[in-house]
Design a protein around this nucleic acid. Sequence first.
DNA 1: GCTCGAAGTAAACGATTGCTGACTTAGTAT
DNA 2: ATACTAAGTCAGCAATCGTTTACTTCGAGC
Lengths: 188, 188
Amino acid sequence: MTDQPRRRNAAQTRQALLDVARARFARHGYAATTVRDIADEAGVNVALINRYFTSKEGLFEACLGMAVTDVDRATEQVEHRDIAEVMARRLAGASGDGRTHDALLLLVRSSGDARIDELRRSVLRAISRKLAGAAEPDEAALLRGQVVLATALGIVLLRNTIGVEPLASAGEQELREVFTDLIRAMVA
Amino acid sequence: MTDQPRRRNAAQTRQALLDVARARFARHGYAATTVRDIADEAGVNVALINRYFTSKEGLFEACLGMAVTDVDRATEQVEHRDIAEVMARRLAGASGDGRTHDALLLLVRSSGDARIDELRRSVLRAISRKLAGAAEPDEAALLRGQVVLATALGIVLLRNTIGVEPLASAGEQELREVFTDLIRAMVA
DNA sequence: GCTCGAAGTAAACGATTGCTGACTTAGTAT
DNA sequence: ATACTAAGTCAGCAATCGTTTACTTCGAGC
């Protein structure tokens, strides 16, 4: 917040739209999310979505880009052997840690556009490569990395979006324990 | 097929709608699926959806019910200690085995209706209870069962819906191997 | 203080959504 | 053969969707 809160600020408005859209796309999916809902929650006029992002799909793609940036930043300085530990901590984090969870959820949501879907696939592959725990994993290791990724996605789904007990309100400690066991069996 | 194919057959039409709807709801989600799409693919008039299922949500709920029946029938005569093996085989099955995969996918799709969501949660809890491998699992065992369920859901998502390689075209043998390892580490 | 471009607003557009009611057709029982 | 009911059709409703256009308002630079 280096600049004082101007009432008219394009960058700020753009960011507000991105934040709201990301959360809603992640939690309810693309089709179930309305541009009017997004604009209203962001306290912004609907037309600005098209002005800043061309279309609803453009906004979705921008959200995906932001999520990718988040994932990259969260993993770039982490040693391969520590990835699992970091992911366990993020996953087990309180439900309030929406950013990480939404980033993962976004990666399983589709807008129906083939080009965006391909982008999403490449990101998922990149993540599973890191989860495989090797710089240049062979196919078998990559497969196991993707199974770990599948578990992470499933956990976020069951825990945050659907809210299945006791997983939804499991403590960070015990969840991390289970996830660590899993990783040891899969990629260690 | 005990009765000859009459041209007008309510039960047959109803079932055709159910089959198509289940596949589309599972693969594209509730909101992204159109009643007209369902009717067209089933070769049936749109109005019949409302006649037989009251509403789009009614059809969705009926699909969920059918999926529940499928899951029950697939697990009722299986010993607790064999559940994992059975699930591994189903999961690893060819992508053509749509029924099992769609049944799982349906359980992570929401229509937005709170009552249906609660039904869905109870089904997911029941499955994870079986996966926990004990008749009366304690909370810790139940949690691990839900993590296994999360993995299964994530795998179907990545493998069938999104199509991430090499998971999407992994052979039944190797996938089953990995999943068996996972279960051994989680609930064995 | 005036101006001019950027930021934001309002209203409506065409298309599509789920759904309904009046209608037609097919099959069966008498 | 005829009548009656169930199965299926058709056209259109009201609501909502994403998007566009013309407009108003703010705020910085001269």
